[in-house]
Nucleic acid binder design. Structure first.
Lengths: 219, 219
DNA sequence: CCGATACGAGACTGTTCCGTATCGATAGTT
DNA sequence: AACTATCGATACGGAACAGTCTCGTATCGG
């Protein structure tokens, strides 16, 4: 039995930075991994996932679309799930911190951003598909929520809390219910293609929620 | 080449009623199809779909779980999609027409029913999976909406409109927004496992929406 | 130039699954 | 009894796909 000739084994996998010069220590021999190939793989993976879901991401297609060989993929990630995990983790949510004048304006702006995201087929389908496949692939779901969903909700919570402090919103506002109602309204819309809404969807939702349904004056 | 000996070809498929005696005219020779087998197939299909989605419905498993042969399935439906279509079409939505005292009570009752449905893993997963696979299998989605979703929304619209007539709700209430906010809140909840809610979720959502967020008295 | 690693391409194996075909047995009509 | 369609079971062809492996080539450090 050989002592296995321990390779340095700094495991560049899934985190390789061929260039980027981490100083001195770990420059590995041989040809560096292509940063460009890696990016193309992630791109293609996200595309295919948005089109077809987990099952639809077939590694052969990812390789073809990214213009790489299958080995180049499996050299970085041990299997399909890890690949998806990395791809979802790479998602950035460029949600602009709203610093508007009034809470109403901030909320409208946020709902508009969410609607815009929903109008992007890639993003919308990623979300819908994860909703369905979340139980089957809980690690994917967790990664997505942590990377995309929760940051977004946090911003909304912050806006609402600020509104309560400034007195613009009722002091006994149910923050969680408000967040659910706003995000949920965006989710539920169009699911049964409403032709009722034009461009003022965000305004109507926010105003509807701000005013409330009740005819009795609340205070 | 034989003339193919044209069979009568009245095509009882997908609509067979072996017993049930459609009067006189069309009693076909041979062993009648088993109504029981048909029901078992539909059941098994819905079960498997709820567990795994479209791809998860593998006909061999449906047959095994229903205790029938594959041929018994393909004799009735020409392919998997038609089978799913029939299965989803068989769904009944036993949503009780609410005739409560106040609109608030009716809405709370409806939200509670929706939450209860969400607590039924079969129903919840059917919905989530369809949401994701809707683009891939639009006919399935359409069938489901027509059978389950729209009837439900209609009831809610009716309740809200009644509230407007009785004066309990603001006359300028945005009915569609209200429906979206209520159904959406239920949808969005738990999707990022909120531990914030106990048993009073329905009440909080309805009251939050009725009162509104705004501190200004609306009228 | 040499050794080491990465590259794209794709052959290959093993699995899963759809849809068809065939089996002897069964349950109806005539 | 003769006839016929359905029954459950299962073998089969074909396609799709994950993951491994092997080409010959390219790119790095020394």
């Amino acid at each position: 039995m050989q002592p296995v000739t321990v390779v340095p084994e700094s495991d560049p996998g899934t985190e390789t930075r061929s260039t980027g010069g981490s100083p001195g220590s770990g420059r590995r021999p041989g040809r560096p991994r292509s940063e460009q190939a890696e990016q193309a793989i992630i791109e293609a993976t996200l595309d295919l996932f948005a089109e077809q879901g987990f099952e639809g991401v077939c590694v052969e297609l990812v390789a073809a679309r990214a213009g790489v060989g299958k080995a180049t993929i499996y050299r970085r990630w041990p299997n399909k799930e890890e690949l998806l995990l990395a791809a979802l983790g790479s998602l950035k949510s460029p949600l602009p911190e709203p610093e508007g004048v009034s809470v109403r304006d901030d909320l409208i702006a946020m709902v508009e951003v969410m609607c815009a995201d929903k109008a992007d087929p890639r993003k919308a389908r990623r979300y819908a598909l994860l909703l369905g496949e979340g139980e089957k692939y809980p690690r994917l779901m967790a990664r997505y929520k942590e990377t995309v969903v929760e940051p977004r909700r946090d911003v909304m919570r912050t806006v609402i809390r600020r509104g309560i402090e400034t007195g613009e919103l009722r002091p006994d506002t149910d923050v969680e219910v408000a967040v659910l109602a706003l995000t949920g309204a965006v989710m539920a819309q169009e699911k049964s293609v409403d032709r009722t809404f034009d461009g003022d969807f965000a305004t109507r939702v926010v105003d509807g929620l701000l005013l409330g349904l009740s005819a009795r004056a609340p205070r």
